[in-house]
C-alpha cells in the first residue's frame, strides 16, 4: 500500500492517527481498557505513566504485534482502517515503531535490510547511488561509525547503537507517524542530544507526528512535546499540553494518585525510576 499523503519531497501534507475506545488483551488478560487518542502531523505527544501500565502495549498494538489482541475499538490512519492491515502494510501506510528492544538479525547487513525496507514502499527500487547517499547521510547525522552499513543488523551493537540505528531507519523510511518506545534509554547525555536533534530535524522537514515514551524529562525537554498523556492501568487518566509533562517532572505522579484516588504504590519500583528522571531535570533547572 502506498502512502498517498507523502508528496515528492517527502513532506507530509497531513496525517491523523485516531485511536478510539481501544481494548487490548494479552493471553486473555485485558491490558488496555479503552484508550482514546488522536495524533496529527507536526505534533509531539509525550506518553507518560508508571511502568507496567500499558504504554508499550499501546504502541505495539498500534504496530500490530501478534501477541496483542484487540478486543474492542478502532485505529485509523487518515481514515484507513489500521486494524485490518498486516504489520508490513501498517509500515507502508506510514507508521513507524522505534522499539525498546530492537531485534538482532545475524548475517543480514544493515544496508541490505534497509534497502529492502525502502524498496518495499517504492514502485521502482531505489538507485544504489541514492541509497548510499541517504544512508551515509543518516549515519553521519546520528554520529555513528561509517561501517554501520556493513555490520549485521543490530548484531553485537551496544544498547546505544541499537537505539541510534532505530532513528537511522526512521530517517530513511520517512513515516508520517512515529512511535518511539524508550528510544532514549541506553543513550548517554551527548547521544541523547544527537538523537533528539535528528528527530526534531525530521519533524521539521517532513511534518512527522510523534508519540514518545520516555522516563527522562531531559528527552522531553529536547523534543518539546505539544501534548502529554498519563496512562495508568490501561486508561489515559490525564491529557494536557506541555505543562502537564512539566508538572509530572516537578511533582511526580503523586498528585494524580490523590486527585484520581488511585493506588500507585504497587508500582513502587518503577515509580522510583521515574523520579530519577525528575531529579535530572530539576538539576538542569
Amino acid at each position: 500500500m502506498e502512502h498517498a499523503k507523502l508528496c515528492m519531497k517527502g513532506e507530509i501534507d497531513m496525517a491523523t492517527l485516531e485511536i478510539k475506545d481501544l481494548h487490548v488483551s494479552v493471553d486473555g488478560k485485558e491490558i488496555l481498557k479503552g484508550i482514546d487518542l488522536e495524533i496529527h502531523d507536526h505534533e509531539v505527544h509525550a506518553l507518560m505513566g508508571p511502568n507496567g501500565n500499558g504504554k508499550s502495549t499501546l504502541l505495539q498494538a498500534i504496530m500490530g504485534h501478534p501477541r496483542y489482541t484487540v478486543t474492542q475499538g478502532s485505529i485509523t490512519l487518515d481514515g484507513q482502517d489500521v486494524l485490518s492491515m498486516s504489520v508490513d502494510e501498517r509500515s507502508k501506510a506510514g507508521l513507524f515503531l522505534g522499539m525498546q528492544y530492537p531485534q538482532e538479525i545475524p548475517g543480514v547487513t544493515n544496508s541490505d535490510f534497509l534497502k529492502a525496507a525502502m524498496n518495499a514502499r517504492l514502485e521502482k527500487p531505489i538507485k544504489l547511488f541514492q541509497f548510499i547517499k541517504q544512508m551515509e547521510g543518516a549515519i553521519k547525522e546520528l554520529e555513528m561509525k561509517p561501517d554501520l552499513a556493513h555490520r549485521f543488523l543490530n548484531d553485537g551493537f551496544s544498547g546505544g547503537e541499537k537505539k541510534r540505528n532505530e532513528i537511522v531507519q526512521m530517517k530513511l523510511l520517512k513515516p508520517s507517524i512515529a512511535m518511539l518506545d524508550e528510544i532514549d534509554s541506553g543513550l548517554d547525555v551527548d547521544a541523547l542530544k544527537v538523537v533528539a536533534n535528528s528527530i526534531t530535524k525530521q519533524k521539521e522537514e517532513t511534518g512527522l507526528g510523534l508519540i514518545v515514551v520516555s522516563h527522562y524529562e531531559r528527552f522531553y525537554t529536547l523534543l518539546k512535546p505539544t501534548h502529554a498523556h498519563v496512562l495508568v492501568d490501561g486508561r489515559i487518566l490525564v491529557s494536557g499540553d506541555a505543562s502537564l509533562a512539566a508538572k509530572i517532572d516537578t511533582e511526580g505522579y503523586e498528585w494524580i494518585s490523590k486527585e484520581y484516588d488511585i493506588d500507585l504504590n504497587s508500582k513502587e519500583d518503577t515509580y522510583k525510576r521515574i523520579s530519577l528522571g525528575s531529579c535530572a531535570a530539576a538539576k538542569r533547572g
Binding site: 504496530m63 500490530g64 504485534h65 501478534p66 498486516s86 504489520v87 508490513d88 501498517r90 509500515s91 507502508k92 513507524f96 515503531l97 522499539m99 530492537p102 531485534q103 538479525i105 535490510f113 529492502a116 525496507a117 518495499a120 514502499r121 531507519q169 523510511l173
Partner: peptide
C-alpha cells in the same frame, strides 16, 4: 524477529 522486520515494511 519477524515482527521487527515486518514493522519496517517487509512482507
Amino acid at each position: 524477529q519477524l515482527f521487527y522486520l515486518m514493522s519496517r515494511g517487509l512482507s
